[in-house]
Design a protein around this nucleic acid. Structure first.
Lengths: 208, 208
DNA sequence: CGTCTAACGGGTCTGAAGTTTCGTTAATGG
DNA sequence: CCATTAACGAAACTTCAGACCCGTTAGACG
């Protein structure tokens, strides 16, 4: 037997998958309720009705478990809406993010995920991948705006989408400011205006 | 004797103050090196050459210590620069933030502070206070821009300053994107353009 | 349907985080 | 300079997260 093989890779079907799902859901609940601090794997095992040995063997640490949870979350994507204008699309995105972060459960979960990522490189990589996928999902609306001539040629779609989210996460994590629909609309508007002005043109400084 | 009195409040001079400083510096080092996870008070006590009993008695938990550290950091403010134009001032601010977050020591420290704040309400409040002070320090440059007519009357100075920092923190914590001078300049430019367009006018939606 | 063994799970052990105790040191006020 | 006691610190104690052992369960493959 070749050791160094991660458990769960040889027989990924049936029970193994079931255990993984149960543990990930339990981890989600625990992170939501307890936050990242004061979280132990034994508690998660109890919630998942699974032996704690299993959790320790397969994930080892809390950050490792969070990294796996992020990968699992990345696999389920939510589709975007299309409104026909850049501002409309960005506003839809901003409100989706705002609603997610405002929701008591989801907001707490995302806080915990981000906190976990600050301490561990692998978890950080998983977080980056998760957001990269989300950003990719929304990027087409900027490309369409470029086709319509709403934003300059060469505008980086990813940067525009990220610019919409940034102020909302800043409120959530750092300033503690109100995270209402007005904040979402402002974030979208600011990003749209900056994009139109060519701030997000790849590689270049300002055009005029 | 009235119990319920926090230790260090009756005789705050001499030794008590010396111990506090030593512990806060040690906590800073530990947070920088180890991150928020895997940080224990006994280690901090060792670094500070102080009995661990003292650390547990005065601060109790890691988050409590971080909250005190934030209050200490808030007391030492760095003065802003003035360039005469809104974009110039915002760019100076953005570059200052960018340099701070890029610095290996400071960047790690801020990550740890923010992570700690996600899990504890008191620490979060301390973090909000810290950033509120920083924002207040820079707000006048927006007010001056309003006097010059660069931005509409009623523009919220705080929101503009926060809009500059937001994308930089988003890179640091969430997307993992490059945090170079170009990113800083873009953040400043986007905020300046949005401010000029009236996005940050208090209470109102878009003007035109 | 039966064999093989990957993966799970209960029980036990251990080391370190955190608490309590009590003696020691040094601010504070007169 | 002395008395008072707040605050510190060393060491013993407690608790529990996380590691380990080994028997049990159930996928994979013929």
């Amino acid at each position: 037997m070749a050791d160094g093989v991660e458990p769960g890779t040889v027989r990924p079907g049936g029970r193994t998958a079931r255990v993984r799902q149960a543990v990930l859901r339990a981890a989600e609940d625990a992170l939501t309720e307890q936050g990242f601090t004061g979280l132990d794997l034994a508690d998660i095992a109890r919630r998942a009705a699974v032996g704690k040995t299993t959790v320790y063997r397969r994930w080892g640490t809390v950050t490792g478990l969070v990294a796996d949870l992020l990968q699992d979350m990345a696999e389920q994507s939510a589709p975007r809406t299309e409104t026909g204008s850049l501002l409309g699309d960005l506003t839809a995105n901003a409100r989706l993010v705002q609603r997610t972060l405002t929701d008591p459960r989801q907001g707490a979960l995302f806080k915990a995920l981000i906190a976990a990522a600050t301490g561990d490189a692998k978890t950080a990589a998983a977080l980056h991948r998760f957001y990269d996928i989300r950003v990719r999902e929304w990027a087409p609306c900027v490309r369409q705006a470029a086709d319509r001539g709403e934003v300059p040629e060469g505008t980086d779609p990813h940067d525009v989408i990220r610019a919409v989210s940034a102020p909302l996460y800043y409120h959530l994590l750092i300033s503690g400011g109100r995270l209402d629909e007005t904040a979402a609309d402002r974030a979208a508007e600011a990003a749209a205006i900056a994009a139109r002005a060519g701030v997000f043109v790849r590689g270049g400084g300002k055009p005029a």
